[in-house]
């Protein structure tokens, strides 16, 4: 069964379409890169699939069901810059948030949840820093904390928004290793990625997008000069120009 099915998805900001008519069938057990230039709608596609944005047309199914029925099966690792790092919270409390999806509305974390938090912190080698306030970590360590939080969610699909931005070599290795492990466990990972180096190493499959879907398929087949040019080609198509005028 498909993990995610996207049919004819169009999402607009202030009446201007950010992505248009996207169709995708995503199968389980792969690491998929979402590639495209700035403003191409990469994050919009990701947030659309997560059900965070209202869409104009189209349909999204996760495991064949509406997003609201599969929320426990997905997790999201946002871009680091969106956080208030001075927030009074420490590492283990951030990771505990990963367990919230599994707790009842007024329930408190139990011993089992605490054990999971400890375990995932070990996994990303951040157990030493469990009590640290999050400002007092390096960029890479901060990224590992949010990876740990997603792991604590024990979900089947992982959405990562630019996880490799501003991290050290150790964290990059850790993220890469983790992506592989999760894939081997049959999980699906969708990763927004903005630069073209390492693309073939990181991702089994690629979604090339620039407002419309340019290509989707195995990295080996899709990562070609023609398709990359088409994705990054700077000039607006006539269609996009007219759309700006009539919107």
């Amino acid at each position: 069964m498909n993990v995610i099915t996207v049919k004819n998805l169009t999402i607009s900001y202030h009446k201007k379409p950010a992505i248009k008519g996207v169709n995708l069938n995503i199968e389980p057990g792969s690491v998929i890169g979402i590639i495209g230039p700035n403003g191409a709608g990469k994050s919009t596609l990701l947030k659309g699939m997560l059900g965070l944005l209202p869409f104009d047309t189209g349909e999204i199914k996760i495991f064949g069901e509406d997003i609201d029925k599969s929320r426990k099966r997905i997790s999201y690792i946002p871009q680091r810059e969106q956080f208030d790092w001075d927030f009074p919270i420490n590492v283990e409390d951030v990771v505990m948030m990963g367990r919230y999806a599994h707790l009842p509305i007024v329930g408190f974390p139990k011993a089992g949840d605490k054990a999971i938090v400890e375990q995932v912190l070990n996994k990303v080698e951040m157990d030493k820093y469990a009590r640290r306030q999050i400002r007092q970590l390096s960029g890479g360590q901060q990224q590992r904390v949010f990876l740990a939080r997603a792991l604590a969610q024990e979900s089947d699909v992982y959405f990562l928004d630019e996880p490799f931005v501003g991290v050290d070599a150790k964290t990059e290795r850790a993220i890469f290793k983790l992506m592989k492990e999760l894939k081997e466990m049959g999980k699906t990972l969708l990763v927004v990625h903005h630069d073209l180096s390492m693309v073939k190493d990181y991702f089994d499959k690629l979604i090339l997008i620039n407002q419309t879907l340019i290509a989707y398929g195995d990295s080996e087949k899709v990562f070609t000069p023609e398709l990359i040019n088409k994705t990054y080609g700077g000039r607006l198509t006539m269609l996009q120009k007219t759309e700006e005028l009539v919107s």
């Binding site: 929320r71 426990k72 956080f83 948030m97 999806a101």
Partner: peptide, 21 residues
């Protein structure tokens, strides 16, 4: 009672939405 909802929506509203809060 709503400690976790208040905490999560204050710190990371996007994640709160993805888990259905």
């Amino acid at each position: 009672l709503f400690y976790k909802q208040l905490l999560l929506t204050s710190f990371d509203p996007t994640m709160a939405m993805t888990i259905g809060i």
